[in-house]
């Protein structure tokens, strides 16, 4: 009994997810005259401030084409934190729905992550635009960005499943996730490059999927080379492992959501 939570729902997952994504998208931009432009403004402002700090105040740490270097970190990081924070509270926010309508619960956090992926796509366009503006010549190796970013979405879905379920049982999880994301900004090579990391700390970076995505994006756009095979293998293994773990945990506890919400 316990293992078979939502057994009788034989609906259309794609249709349901697309409706949830549309809902998130429309709600977020209601009443904003600039609408979708906000998706582009936020990372640009962040990039502007950090570029100022690292070219005017701490110029010894900046690299050439620094704005592009920063955007390679900011775009994947923004997507990850925004989708993890909103996915973590997604089940609790949808409590009324979960207590009244029998439908597969995993679409709630996954739909939230996918809604954020739309912004990720827009910001990726911005990243490529910046690369062109800074005179980086496009090539076929740019296509590597697609699987790399896709793996990040897989990773975010796994984390979203895990933390949204935990947040149902313990109310502090949301705050822990929010604080952790502030720390993460400094623990992922966003404002500094991977080469500056002392070798004794390298292990912490090598198995962090988010760090791997940032490094891969820099390989592709700044070095003009596809990411290394070992980096890709680690990224695939870590993201898929987290997705399976999140899915397993979610499936294991979801029959209790009703009682705890």
């Amino acid at each position: 009994m316990a293992s078979a939570a939502i057994t009788d729902w034989k609906g259309d997952y794609g249709f349901l997810l697309s409706n949830l994504i549309k809902r998130d998208f429309k709600i977020r931009y209601r009443g904003m005259s600039l609408g979708i432009l906000w998706s582009v403004v936020n990372p640009l402002v962040m990039m502007g401030v950090l570029t100022f700090v690292f070219t005017q105040i701490l110029p010894e740490y900046s690299t050439k084409k620094f704005p592009v270097f920063l955007m390679c970190g900011l775009v994947p990081f923004n997507f990850f934190t925004l989708s993890l924070i909103s996915a973590t509270s997604s089940l609790v926010d949808s409590a009324a729905l979960i207590k009244r309508v029998p439908f597969p619960r995993e679409v709630v956090p996954i739909g939230t992550v996918l809604a954020n992926s739309v912004h990720f796509l827009i910001q990726s366009g911005l990243l490529l635009g910046m690369a062109l503006v800074f005179g980086i010549r496009p090539g076929w190796h740019w296509l590597w960005l697609a699987p790399v970013f896709l793996l990040e979405i897989v990773f975010a879905c796994g984390m979203g499943l895990l933390f949204s379920a935990l947040n149902v049982f313990v109310g502090d999880v949301r705050y822990v996730v929010e604080s952790a994301n502030t720390l993460l900004f400094w623990l992922v090579p966003i404002v500094y490059s991977f080469d500056l990391i002392p070798s004794r700390f390298e292990m912490f970076y090598l198995y962090n999927p988010l760090a791997a995505v940032v490094m891969a994006a820099r390989n592709i756009l700044l070095d003009g080379t596809p990411p290394s095979i070992s980096l890709l293998v680690r990224l695939v293994l870590c993201s898929v492992f987290v997705l399976l773990l999140g899915h397993r945990f979610f499936g294991w506890v979801q029959h209790k959501f009703f009682d705890y919400l």
């Binding site: 729902w9 034989k10 609906g11 259309d12 794609g14 249709f15 349901l16 697309s18 409706n19 949830l20 549309k22 809902r23 729905l97 309508v101 439908f103």
Partner: peptide
């Protein structure tokens, strides 16, 4: 559309 998809109807 949203409610129909939640209740399990196809597009």
């Amino acid at each position: 559309f949203l409610n129909a998809s939640l209740l399990g109807l196809s597009r």
